[in-house]
Design a protein around this nucleic acid. Structure first.
Lengths: 142, 142
DNA sequence: TTGGAAACTGCAATCGGTTGCAACAACCAT
DNA sequence: ATGGTTGTTGCAACCGATTGCAGTTTCCAA
């Protein structure tokens, strides 16, 4: 079973078709560790199947996102995607080097509960990501 | 002195030119309370000066943002803008009704400090905004 | 008050992302 | 195995936002 085999199963279980295009997009996602951009996915699939259209890549990613099979990472303009395999986590994205680091949802618990208790506002934290400056870049800058 | 008079002064002090287009964009921002979208600003300016181009509106807002004279509110696709006059605050934006509510930076202090202490990551919180479901919409939904 | 340098604008081209549509293909029932 | 339903794709048009460029305007210095 490949790294994205389970994701293919879940797609099918949810009643969607297993098209070659979708399989290739998922293979691209599974092929590189961490987050990967649309252009990167497109180039990779296009190399082996030149008829692929960007629209299909976007539609596939949209679908995978709705089914909670990928996470979308939005910080700083262009979105990047990651197969969901591990436990839920959030991301810190460096505005300088663009690297992403994970952190646990527990870091947002207090914030989450205070918004609910004091405003009755239920924040969407599932795909939460925060931009900033990572320690390496901060050190370098000094 | 109009509501945006001080902002005009700051623009000039920073060495930028006071063009009629910029004055009109600022007037539009000052004319409505709360956050306002680019299309709204454009329509308003266009009504009194039909030669205005969207590009100019975008460029003006970009400039005002860099100079910290407006805040940009990004949640949910299209950006909205607000003149900075009041103290610093963050926003909750309802994914259902699109209304925005303010909350104090103190709500993020614990989160902020933990990222610094445990990862050395300095998050950008200046324009922080979080999407979610407001209490009115949550009630209505039940 | 006026001349000139540099900033700014409008225009048009462009770019990333989305959508309508007709042709096509996956998949289930037979 | 095969046919029909219907989800999916590629294409092209489109949309909001950004950028290069040439002409225009602001604003300071003289």
């Amino acid at each position: 079973m490949t790294r994205h085999g389970k994701t293919l199963d879940k797609l099918k279980e949810a009643g969607y078709r297993l098209t070659p295009q979708r399989v290739m997009v998922l293979a691209a996602l599974a092929g590189k560790p961490g987050h990967i951009g649309v252009d990167d996915i497109f180039r990779q699939v296009h190399a082996s199947y030149p008829y692929i259209d960007v629209a299909t890549v976007y539609r596939t990613l949209q679908l995978l996102k709705v089914l909670h099979l990928v996470t979308e990472l939005d910080v700083g303009g262009s979105a990047r995607y990651e197969l969901i395999e591990t436990e839920v986590h959030h991301h810190m994205v460096c505005r300088n080097c663009s690297r992403a680091f994970d952190f646990s949802p527990t870091y947002l618990e207090e914030f989450h509960h205070r918004l609910i208790q004091e405003f009755g506002f239920e924040p969407d934290l599932e795909h939460f990501a925060i931009g900033g400056l990572c320690s390496a870049c901060a050190r370098e800058r000094r």
